[in-house]
């Protein structure tokens, strides 16, 4: 398998699903990712804070969607809803027919491990593992591939992101850009069809940010679906579609 290769996926047997009336995307097909009237309210001592209000968003397979907005507009909350890291207060989120807002934490983790790769702003590599081990750990947890093959697959992914030479180093010995590439390789470890990423270039210089973006572009060309949160409007414009969010509402898509 190489980066960009399309893989066929199916919903996990152990993940509860229910029949849903999937929304149609603009071209009339069923959307891969479907947000329906999603709301998120954070309850604080100072009062309720609505982070998302009535979000309706459909993304088709193979799309590269960027989400932009000002700080505090709800971008990160939106991507956290997609990854299951956070749960909506109201509304439904369906991905490939699976209502992820109904999954338990444990089922969500299992489902996410196989179907969704997450790339964080601060890379979030495990410091006590080498780079290649960081890439292998999702395979271990999700019991993907034969154990003897995992190293080869991980090396292959690192090769694709251009840091195979650093495979056996601890993450702390890599530059920010290299660490982000390692994080992307880890996100691809179980060959998920969807990549969700929150400010993946926020901590990188413009040259490195450009390289990371090109990597994403290559993944989309290979059939992956990417939702990328960014505050960099120039970069966002280079994605296939841009969703702008303000005060928890989509104001343009």
């Amino acid at each position: 398998m190489v980066v960009g290769e399309t893989v066929n996926y199916s919903s996990e047997k152990h993940v509860k699903t229910r029949a849903t009336s999937e929304s149609k995307s603009t071209n009339g097909h069923s959307a891969l990712i479907d947000f329906r009237d999603v709301e998120k309210i954070y309850r604080t001592e100072a009062g309720d804070f609505p982070a998302l209000r009535g979000i309706n968003l459909q993304i088709e397979g193979g799309e590269f969607v960027s989400v932009i907005g000002k700080s505090g507009s709800g971008k990160t909350t939106l991507v956290n809803m997609l990854t299951g890291i956070d749960h909506p207060t109201k509304g439904e989120i369906s991905i490939a027919g699976v209502n992820i807002h109904e999954l338990t934490e444990s089922n969500m983790a299992r489902w996410r491990g196989r179907n969704l790769g997450v790339v964080f702003q601060f890379f979030q590599l495990l410091p006590t593992l080498s780079v290649v081990q960081n890439v292998m750990i999702p395979m271990d947890f999700c019991n993907m591939y034969v154990p003897a093959e995992r190293m080869g697959i991980a090396m292959n992914l690192l090769e694709q992101v251009g840091i195979a030479d650093h495979a056996h180093k601890p993450p702390s010995r890599l530059s920010g850009g290299q660490q982000q590439r390692a994080a992307i390789a880890r996100a691809l470890a179980n060959d998920p069809p969807i990549i969700a990423t929150d400010e993946p270039t926020g901590n990188l210089d413009s040259k490195t940010a450009n390289q990371v973006f090109e990597l994403f572009q290559k993944l989309v060309d290979g059939g992956k679906t990417i939702l990328m949160v960014t505050h960099d409007e120039d970069l966002a414009k280079r994605a296939g579609r841009t969703v702008e969010i303000a005060d928890g509402e989509i104001i343009r898509q």
């Binding site: 990854t83 890291i85 934490e105 444990s106 983790a109 299992r110 996410r112 491990g113 196989r114 790769g117 997450v118 964080f120 979030q124 590599l125 495990l126 410091p127 750990i137 999702p138 947890f141 999700c142 880890r186 996100a187 470890a189 179980n190």
Partner: peptide, 16 residues
Amino acid sequence: VKQIGIMRSVGAERLQ
């Protein structure tokens, strides 16, 4: 804690 969060984000179940 953060590492636990990362492991969960890449598919680890709580019991794992």
